[in-house]
Every structure is written in C-alpha cells, then in structure tokens.
Design a protein around this nucleic acid. Structure first.
Lengths: 242, 242
DNA sequence: CTGGATTTGTGCGTATGTATG
DNA sequence: ACATACATACGCACAAATCCA
C-alpha cells in the first residue's frame, strides 16, 4: 500500500496547513502506530515540498510532544504519546514561579492527594495480594534507606504507580506519575529533604489500611502520607523569603 | 543589569548541557517572567556559540511547551507556561487511538467527572451569586441553541471553567480545561453530536443542585450531566467497528 | 502613509557525527 | 574495517512580518 501524503490546502477550510499539521495528518491517514518508522527527513522534504530545515523544525515540535521520536543516525519513528512534554513544562513552571508563587507546589500536592483518594474504594476492593507484597517490600526498603539518612525516589515513585494501577484508568496513572516527577524535581530546589523516616513509614501505614479493607482508613492514611510533605514545603517557602 | 549567560559545561555534572537547557537556564538565572522579551535569535546564536539553525530548533521545542512564545517579525518572549502542549499531545493520542482503543475517551470523561465531583462540597459552599447568575445565563443560551439543533461549545466550556473556579486550585482548572478541549476535538471525529437538549438541560440541573446547598445533590447532577456524553461515545464506537 | 530598520521565517549547500549491516 | 544511510550542524542569502519614526 503506497503512503498517502496530505496536501497543503485542506479541502474546505482554505487556511493552508502547517508543516507540523501535515506530518500529523500523514501519521493519521496512514494509520501508523507508536514505534512505526517515519519517512526520512529527505523524503518528507520532497513529498511535502519544503526544505529540510522546516522539516527538522517541525520534527523538533513533534518530538517535544512525543508525537515522533528521533533516533540519531538511525531514523524517525512514531512516538509513544507519553506525557513527557507535560512533565517538562510543569517542572519549568515550578522552577520559575516557586520563588514568588507558592501556590504551584501546594496545588500539585493537593491534586496528587485528591486523585489517589478518589480511587481508595477501588483499591481496597481490588488490589491483589501480589501487588501488596511488592509494595510492602518497597516500603521496607524506604524505611531502611531513611534510617541511613538516604532518600528513596525510585521506590517512592514505584509505590505510587502500583497504588493507582488498580484504577484501570491509564490516563490518571500517567498523570500522577508526571506529578510525581514534577514534585520531585521542584522540591529539590527547596533544599535537602526532611522528615524522611516519617515519610517512609507512612507507606507502611497505607498498606496496613488497605489490609483492613476500609476505604475510609485508606483515605486517612493517604492524607497522613502527604502531611510531612506539606510541612516541608511550608517550612522551605518560609525560609526562602526573597 | 547585564544578562547572565549559562555555559555549556554545567559545573559538577560534566555532561554538556543541551541548547534547550541552556536557554531555560538563561530564563531562570535572569529571573524572567512570562511576557518578558528574550534575546534575538542572532544574539542567542552569538552568546551560546551555536548556529542560528540550532537556536531555532531549540526555540521550536520550547515554544511547543509554551516556555517561549515566538512572534514573527517582532521577537521572542517568555511564554505563559500554559498546558497547550498537553492539549495537542492528548488530542493527537485520541485521534490516533480512538479507532482501536476506546479506553482513552472513557478515561478522559471519567477523569473530568471525578475532578468536578471532588470539588462539589466546596462549590456548594463558596460559589457566589454573581457566578451562579453568569452560569445560569450560559445554561439558558445552551438550551436555546440546542432547541435550534445547534451545538454550544463556547458556552459549555465557559460553564465548566466557572464551575471549578471556586476550587482555588489553578492547576486543576487548567487541566480540566485541557481535558475539555481534547474531548471536544476527539468527539468531533465520532460523527455529529447527539442528545443536545438533554446535555444542555443538565447544566440547569447542576445549578439547581448548587442552589439547594447539598453537595450530594450536586454530585448526582454532575454524574447525570456526563451520562448522555457517555452514551453518545458508546454508540459511536459501536457504530464504527472497523 | 511611507520608508527603513529589526526580527523571525524559509531555502539550500556542504560538511560532520553516528548507527546499522 | 568498510560502506551506506541517516541525523546533526553550520553559514549564508533572501522573503515576510512587525514596529516605529
């Protein structure tokens, strides 16, 4: 089946399509899936009748949104449509505004807490024993690391990923993971972590609540988990009054 | 005050910074705010010692994330850090996967409903009379348009923006607005709208519930609002079995 | 309103680095 | 080790848009 190439003028609406839009159209019309190879820059340049510079700039836009993925010296492929762009954008917003606008981090934490609590009833009902065991192991590792004064980003991130994996809503899982990344990045700029043992222990408390089978208990445990994080944030912003 | 320019080698970690990162650094170090002018491409090219093509490609990445905003023939400015990139990315994901993967739209609707319901207690408590009046006017307009068989995207979008404006959480407001845009774009590909009168009337029901002062009533009204939307989606996906 | 200056947008040629086989 | 295909990078010239005197 020959590839179909979108034209510059889009039928009815007479506004000429941008190069970015025409490349998106190409992917849609030819029903490509994530991972499928894209034409080379040279071929795109020929088929769309624009210079390679424009193709490259369009590709930069598309790869920033993970619509395409460029592999140096190899080729270009349809991207996985992940939310890396959102993570970058939010992280930068946090860095830029955390001086004067403390709302951002607070809003971010509120949203994380809110979304996890939303799934509490489903979690106590459907989280399977295997997942719980894996989370328990992560929590134990976190406590150990905290006792040594070390942080535990990988374990924490995976713990929360597993927690909402029950929801069955892929979008909320990806969103929460992005929020975790942003929170992690931005809070690094607020000085060293604090209250590590409390934070680590809170994960055990979450698992305990799940095993009681009470959604209300889980909700309370999740709220308590975010408490030391909030305190640290408030103290940091109080200290860096510019 | 002279501008500070970031160097390629970032102090400790000896991995050379990318052009994108160095431009981000420039914004951060010089404490620029959204709307502030950026150096010209030529000046960036000189100061960062890379060609203008590279600067332009980096700018494309940054403008895709709304970190900078480029105005043809005028200049480049620090962007508003909006979530337009997320909207584009999600919209494309929806277009690409809505054929074989019906989860996406369903997850999106679930998330919208969930987040609006989260704020129901706060809404019934704090939404002021002026805002309610404005929303009532929008709902009336929607019903009128629906009676004529016309759609009402602008009114619907603004209605939901006002609904969550009470939350005080700017992030959730922006996220919900993005979800609205994505939902609107993707559902266009599922054929013409249906159940317009029911959908329009549901907005009046939401306001009625708010005026009763009961969070539970509001929650129920919000759920009912999303019901015809879900039905339409299910019927569309059933009809387009590829 | 008309230039003219500034700035971004576009096109092209060429050389270099990088991955695959 | 070599050849090929591809992405990366640079520099220049000109077009188009915007602003301001």
């Amino acid at each position: 089946m020959p590839a179909q190439w979108p034209t510059a003028d889009d039928g009815a609406g007479r506004a000429p399509l941008t190069v970015v839009d025409r490349i998106k159209q190409y992917i849609l019309v030819n029903r490509l899936s994530p991972g499928d190879p894209m034409p080379t820059e040279h071929e795109l340049s020929d088929q769309l009748a624009v210079s390679r510079s424009r193709i490259r700039e369009a590709m930069k836009t598309l790869s920033a949104l993970d619509i395409v993925e460029v592999r140096h010296g190899y080729g270009t492929f349809v991207g996985t449509l992940s939310l890396t762009g959102l993570a970058e954008s939010l992280a930068f917003r946090g860095m830029l505004t955390s001086h004067r606008d403390k709302h951002f981090l607070a809003d971010l934490i509120d949203l994380r807490e809110l979304l996890e609590i939303d799934w509490a009833p489903l979690i106590v009902e459907r989280l399977d024993a295997g997942t719980i065991a894996a989370m328990r192991a992560l929590a134990t590792t976190m406590v150990d690391l905290a006792a040594q004064g070390r942080e535990f980003p990988v374990e924490d991130r995976q713990f929360h990923q597993l927690l909402v994996s029950t929801s069955g809503n892929a979008l909320v899982g990806q969103l929460l993971d992005v929020f975790w990344q942003v929170h992690s990045l931005v809070s690094e700029t607020l000085g060293p972590a604090s209250l590590l043992p409390e934070t680590a222990q809170a994960h055990h408390a979450i698992l305990d609540a799940i095993e009681t089978g009470s959604a209300a208990a889980l909700e309370a445990a999740i709220r308590e988990h975010y408490q030391p994080i909030r305190e640290r944030m408030l103290r940091s912003t109080a200290g860096t009054a510019d």
